[in-house]
Nucleic acid binder design. Structure first.
Lengths: 192, 192
DNA sequence: TGAAAAGTACAACGATCGTTGTACACTGGG
DNA sequence: CCCAGTGTACAACGATCGTTGTACTTTTCA
């Protein structure tokens, strides 16, 4: 583990500490010590703390979505993959949502980098719905997105099982979606 | 507004700033300035930053659940009440979840105070289900809790409408819960 | 072999953090 | 009137923050 490339060690150390305790609560010195790297080396690679955070965000985003895909595709595998992710990495609520809220109102690039996750998530949900043969209209994607975020947040309170609960609920929604015309009200449209 | 009691001004100012940018990102001086109070006065009332945070957590928790109840009770009013809350206070992901993650691993009282929200939330969901005449078994509460957390998190990405999407989904779940015996798998049990 | 690249040790910068001491001004009720 | 309570102004404490300069050692590879 000690002979892993320097940048990889910095990124994974920073990701772990940021994920566990938050971006403002973790200092550069602690990250460097955890990565067994001098502060000077860290700055030569990352430029600044904001640069480090952006690099960590990009790195995690790619790893995360790749991890969700490698189980085969489809809603079921997406939510079981999410449960697996929580089992291996712990559940500390959405990494990207926390970056957005911690840096909300600032003019740096952190918020913009974190927001890229949002758009990609909806695309990923559409992909998994497509694998299942469902037509992914906006309302259904909204519902699955709420369940996805719900799993991520609720896992902090009830563990990885939250993802399985969300997956089960998603299955119910999809199975009943065509006979729900008995509902007088339609799913709320996202107007934002 | 300037003649409101000192403690009330401190609490609401701290809550607003903490909610918008996070606990570690906001300093005592900024809170005191926003509340138009000297730092010394703030410390006389709150003792420490941790004390202030705990007071804010308790204050918000009571206000939040009271706000969800005053619309009448039942699942529908709970989720529309949540949407109203987001419209008035903004959506920055769950205040209490963020307190837990930002202070995870520390030995202070912040985490314990924030965790009180979790238990109360499940009780509140059970209450609202009861008003609707549903028997609130653990699995159903799990599902509603995931939808509730999902609304809170997704509202950061898609606005207050996330709560209405979650409410609509909850209605579907409840409406179909008795004819879902066709499902070979049962809702996952929360074993944590 | 030798030069460039990569990493380290260490001290220090100004800024800000949470927190406290001290001395003083205002307010109400006995 | 005077006391007790409440709040203020202001300076300062040590600690930590993000960041950088300098000088040195190690690794890489042509």
């Amino acid at each position: 583990m000690a002979e892993r490339p320097t940048v990889a060690r910095i990124l994974s150390s920073a990701e772990e500490l940021f994920d566990r305790r938050g971006f403002h609560a973790v200092g550069i010195d602690e990250i460097a010590a955890h990565a067994e790297v001098s502060t000077r080396t860290l700055y030569k690679h990352m430029g600044s703390k904001d640069g480090l955070i952006c690099a960590v965000l990009d790195h995690r985003r790619e790893r995360f979505f790749a991890s969700l895909r490698e189980t085969g595709g489809g809603l079921d595998s997406m939510f079981t993959g999410l449960a697996d992710w929580f089992s291996h990495h712990g559940a500390h609520s959405c990494f990207f949502l926390r970056a957005v809220t911690e840096y909300d109102g600032t003019d740096g690039e952190v918020v913009a980098t974190a927001r890229r996750f949002d758009h990609q998530l909806r695309g990923e949900i559409a992909h998994h719905l497509d694998v299942d043969g469902c037509d992914a209209d906006t309302s259904l994607i909204d519902q699955i997105a709420v369940l996805f975020d719900g799993a991520t947040a609720a896992a902090v309170r009830m563990g990885p099982n939250a993802a399985l609960v969300a997956g089960y609920t998603a299955r119910q929604i999809v199975a009943h979606q065509d006979r729900d015309h008995q509902f007088t009200d339609r799913p709320p449209k996202d107007t934002t």
